[in-house]
Amino acid sequence: MTNERRVLVHPDKGSLASSVAARFITKMLDILDDQPVAHVVLTGGSMAGAVLESIASSPARTSIDWSRVHFWWGDERWVPAGSDERNDWIADRSLLDDLDLPDENVHRFPASDSGMTLDDAAVAFAAELAEHGVDGADAPAFDITFLGVGPDGHIASLFPHRSGIQVTDRTVIAVRNSPKPPPERLSLTRPVLNASQRIWFVLSGADKASALGLALAGASRDEVPVAGIKGRRRTVFFVDSDAAAEVPEVLIARDY
């Protein structure tokens, strides 16, 4: 399968969220036609919440057999369960609480009040990933992985000039002294993310324009971590016009 990388530009945040939601529903129907279950990685932030809210409000969402969809996260903040700082809290409020999912379909990172240390939590989540790997793989080959991008180019909790983006011998890392609060986090590593069939970046705002432009221009993954992430089948940057300000016209796709 040819790996494709595209940038799709939308006029504003609202149209961006609704377009990504519609594409997600369509793609999930295609995936579930071809295989018994699907694995999806979610991210945090306001844009992620807007996309999930658009999915939740779409009448077409009822066409998906959600009992066959497993949800994961690319990273999580090391705070107590139920905290509104957690990425899973955003997803629960925006979509998951309305889907009546089986508990075993929602794969949350451990919380700081779980009784585990941060390092133990990384090991425990790595074991959970491995349980769902196929043919000895150490993690699922995620069907769709959503990622946001920080103004500094970070993805998940893999930050510029930090060792996390370079880790290849683990699926999950404990993050300490994060340059973005809170300081302690858990994150999937680059090899796990790059094993995804499809990477969908969703970006809005002028503060993301520089990072996106640098990533597409071939910047180092150590300098701009988003530059080191690419899905096996397809990598799509869904962006609004402000975030696309530094994307060369030749890289902007006219259709999906």
Rank of each mutant, 00 (worst) to 15 (best):
residue 111 A to E: 06
residue 127 A to H: 01
residue 125 F to W: 03
residue 82 G to P: 07
residue 111 A to H: 01
residue 103 D to H: 01
residue 102 P to H: 06
residue 84 D to Q: 09
residue 111 A to Q: 03
residue 85 E to I: 04
residue 80 P to Q: 08
residue 77 R to E: 13
residue 101 L to M: 14
residue 104 E to H: 08
residue 103 D to G: 00
residue 104 E to A: 11
residue 82 G to C: 13
residue 102 P to C: 11
residue 128 E to P: 01
residue 90 I to T: 15
residue 96 L to C: 04
residue 119 D to Y: 04
residue 115 G to L: 13
residue 94 S to Q: 09
residue 124 A to V: 12
residue 94 S to N: 03
residue 105 N to L: 04
residue 105 N to G: 03
residue 126 A to E: 15
residue 125 F to P: 04
residue 122 A to D: 12
residue 103 D to T: 10
residue 73 W to T: 10
residue 123 V to D: 15
residue 101 L to S: 04
residue 93 R to A: 15
residue 86 R to Q: 08
residue 82 G to I: 13
residue 102 P to L: 08
residue 123 V to N: 12
residue 119 D to S: 14
residue 96 L to E: 05
residue 106 V to K: 00
residue 76 E to I: 09
residue 78 W to G: 12
residue 80 P to M: 11
residue 92 D to W: 08
residue 109 F to E: 11
residue 99 L to T: 06
residue 82 G to T: 10
residue 104 E to Q: 07
residue 128 E to W: 00
residue 100 D to P: 00
residue 107 H to I: 07
residue 95 L to S: 03
residue 110 P to Y: 01
residue 127 A to F: 00
residue 117 T to A: 12
residue 120 D to E: 15
residue 83 S to D: 15
residue 97 D to Y: 00
residue 97 D to H: 04
residue 115 G to K: 08
residue 82 G to D: 12
residue 81 A to P: 01
residue 95 L to V: 09
residue 100 D to L: 13
residue 129 L to Y: 02
residue 89 W to P: 03
residue 87 N to R: 02
residue 78 W to Q: 13
residue 80 P to K: 06
residue 124 A to I: 06
residue 90 I to E: 12
residue 73 W to Q: 14
residue 95 L to G: 06
residue 93 R to Y: 00
residue 83 S to F: 02
residue 105 N to W: 00
residue 107 H to L: 13
residue 88 D to E: 15
residue 84 D to F: 01
residue 78 W to I: 13
residue 126 A to C: 05
residue 99 L to S: 06
residue 122 A to G: 09
residue 86 R to T: 05
residue 116 M to T: 09
residue 120 D to S: 14
residue 103 D to N: 03
residue 124 A to M: 07
residue 123 V to G: 05
residue 87 N to M: 11
residue 89 W to F: 15
residue 80 P to E: 15
residue 99 L to I: 09
residue 88 D to N: 10
residue 87 N to H: 04
residue 89 W to N: 15
residue 77 R to P: 07
residue 128 E to S: 13
residue 78 W to R: 11
residue 115 G to A: 11
residue 73 W to K: 06
residue 118 L to A: 11
residue 96 L to N: 02
residue 108 R to E: 08
residue 90 I to H: 01
residue 97 D to S: 14
residue 118 L to M: 12
residue 131 E to H: 03
residue 117 T to I: 13
residue 111 A to W: 00
residue 74 G to Y: 01
residue 101 L to Q: 03
residue 123 V to M: 11
residue 101 L to H: 01
residue 105 N to K: 04
residue 123 V to C: 08
residue 99 L to P: 03
residue 110 P to M: 05
residue 108 R to P: 02
residue 110 P to H: 02
residue 115 G to S: 09
residue 117 T to K: 07
residue 127 A to K: 09
residue 95 L to M: 06
residue 82 G to A: 12
residue 98 D to E: 13
residue 78 W to K: 10
residue 108 R to D: 08
residue 127 A to G: 13
residue 111 A to Y: 00
residue 99 L to E: 05
residue 108 R to F: 01
residue 91 A to L: 12
residue 126 A to I: 06
residue 80 P to W: 02
residue 79 V to D: 07
residue 125 F to V: 11
residue 124 A to K: 01
residue 108 R to C: 08
residue 100 D to V: 05
residue 74 G to S: 11
residue 77 R to W: 04
